[in-house]
Design a protein around this nucleic acid. Structure first.
Lengths: 166, 166
DNA sequence: ATGATTGTTTGGAAATTTTCAAACGAAACA
DNA sequence: TGTTTCGTTTGAAAATTTCCAAACAATCAT
């Protein structure tokens, strides 16, 4: 009989690593998240190291970064001196929020440059000005829909969780 | 009197580079886009090289990548053997579409793993299964709102352009 | 206090990415 | 056909990022 566990776990680690990499993040972040996603119980730093075949240095740094972004969290475990980690209950929306910040920054960039350009009153910068107006509106609208999404997700998520608990 | 042009151009190149980098993309992509955003007229490869102080190798590769993603486009110029580039009229939505593809991929990843887990009928994988269900729903909902945004933007954009031309 | 166990920090090695210079190829012109 | 002017490709250098091993710090147990 095939070992479902290790096969699926391997696949998850692989695929999450690729996905994180595609988003410009460290592959290892995806690997750690996948390992924690797969495990029903929290994992210690050593567990993660062993499962991923990496040493403690990078895993320690990556778990901190992930915890800083609220994608995973440290969980207190009685009767153990080790730190245990699990995926944050809001991992998906928290990852999204990080992206949201970047979008807001784009809006600010456009507004700033537009304002800069407009104070010069230079006719030659008209094209740039228009482009920045378009950029600003684009990201403002995007912010609006991002907010809609977050709001609707919080409702949807509650529904999903209430299905499970009842 | 200060040279508005070079000051604003420098600032744009800097800031766009940082923004692209924050999204996990090559800084140079942001630099090229900024240079083209700033210029009312299309720029040749040599123009871009000179403005950014880079050699032709990387600029040639970056412009191709940008053109592949439809962020910039080659524009035909009469009486010149050079290639000229300008920002794509739909640069913002095209950049967004690229991100959209990554999101769709996340939905597919979740669906795939969920399906894998479910065929094993292994009780120990219940936690993973539930997490994948949540992940799939999250990104499905996200796709919906992304689509809403794209649709509304195309209306908004038409309005913006009709304001300018009239 | 001392020793054992665990997480963090750090200096440098390894790997990856970025960049350039030069060779190359293609197209336009003479 | 030969020459010039482009853009692309390529091999290696430079820079950056990732990673490990070892030193270190902190905490708990004895």
């Amino acid at each position: 009989m095939v070992d479902h566990h290790s096969r699926i776990k391997r696949s998850m680690i692989q695929v999450f690593g690729d996905a994180y990499h595609a988003f410009g993040l460290n592959r290892l972040m995806g690997h750690v998240v996948a390992a924690l996603m797969f495990s029903p119980e929290p994992l210690s730093l050593d567990d993660i190291c062993k499962q991923l075949g990496k040493s403690k240095g990078p895993i320690s740094q990556i778990t901190r970064r992930l915890a800083d972004h609220n994608l995973i969290r440290r969980v207190w475990t009685p009767g153990s001196r080790k730190d245990y980690y699990e995926v944050h209950p809001d991992i998906f929306s928290n990852a999204f929020r990080y992206n949201f910040r970047l979008i807001r920054n784009n809006t600010k960039i456009a507004a700033q440059i537009r304002s800069d350009v407009e104070t010069t009153r230079d006719e030659k910068l008209k094209t740039t000005q228009f482009r920045m107006v378009e950029m600003e509106r684009f990201y403002q609208l995007m912010e609006k829909h991002y907010q809609n999404f977050i709001d609707e997700w919080s409702v949807e998520r509650d529904r999903l969780y209430s299905q499970v608990t009842k």
